[in-house]
Amino acid sequence: MTDWLSPDEWTAVALSLRVSFWAVLVSLPLGLLVAHALARWQFPGKQILNGIVHLPLILPPVVTGYLLLITFGRKGTVGQYLDQWFGIVFAFRWTGAVLAAAIMAFPLMVRAMRLAIEAVDPKLEQAGATLGASRPWVWLTVTLPMILPGVIAGAILAFAKAMGEFGATITFVSNIAGQTRTLPSAIYTFLQVPGGEAQAARLVWVAIAIAMAALLLSEWVSRLVARRISGR
C-alpha cells in the first residue's frame, strides 16, 4: 500500500481510521443511553439534554473546539484534574482528536438510534415482561435486536462524520503529524505547501473511497438486519 501513498499520507489515513474507530466505540454506549432517555423517559430537563446533544451539529466547529480546549485542555476546568488525578491528557494528543470527533459525531449517532428506539412497539416489550423476562432481559432480547439496524446506521454515520472532522479537531488538538494530523488536516496541510496538490488529491480519493465504503456497508448491514427483524 505504501508504494502509492507516501509514509506521511499513510500515517494520516491510519490515524484517521484509528481516531474514528475509537470515537465511535467509546460514544456508542453513551449514545444508546442518551437515545433511550430521549425516546422513552420523561424527566425534567429533557429538552436541555436534547439541546446539548445537538449543539455540536449547529455550532461552528471552531467554537466546539474552543470549548473543548478550555474544558479539556491541560489548564482546562476539567482537563487539569484529569491530568493531576488520572494522568489523562487530551490536549495535542490523538486521544484529544478522538474526543473531538466523538463529540462532533454524537448528535448524528443519537438521532439515528433515537428514531430506531421510537419505532419499537412498547407492546412487544410488555409481551416479554409477561413471559417472565425482567427489564434488562427484555432490553437485550427484544429491544436491542429490534433497534440493531438503527444502531448500526448511527455508528456508521458517526464513523463517517468522525473521518471528516476538521474544525473542532484542529482548534482543540492542533495539527501535529503522527499525533493529531488526521485525513482532513493532512489535505489542508498539503494544500498550504506549494506543489502539494498531488498529495492532497490522492488523499481526497482515499477519503471518497472510505466514505463510499462506509455508506455501502451500512446499507448492506442494515438491510440484512431489517430483513431479519421484519419477521419474514
Binding site: K123, L124, Q126, A127, T130, L131, G132, A133, W137
Partner: peptide, 16 residues
C-alpha cells in the same frame, strides 16, 4: 415478570 401470568394479546405480539 414475577407474576407468572401468561397473556395472550389480541394482536398476538409475536417477536418478529
Amino acid at each position: 415478570h414475577r407474576r407468572r401470568i401468561g397473556y395472550v394479546f389480541q394482536d398476538a405480539r409475536l417477536f418478529p
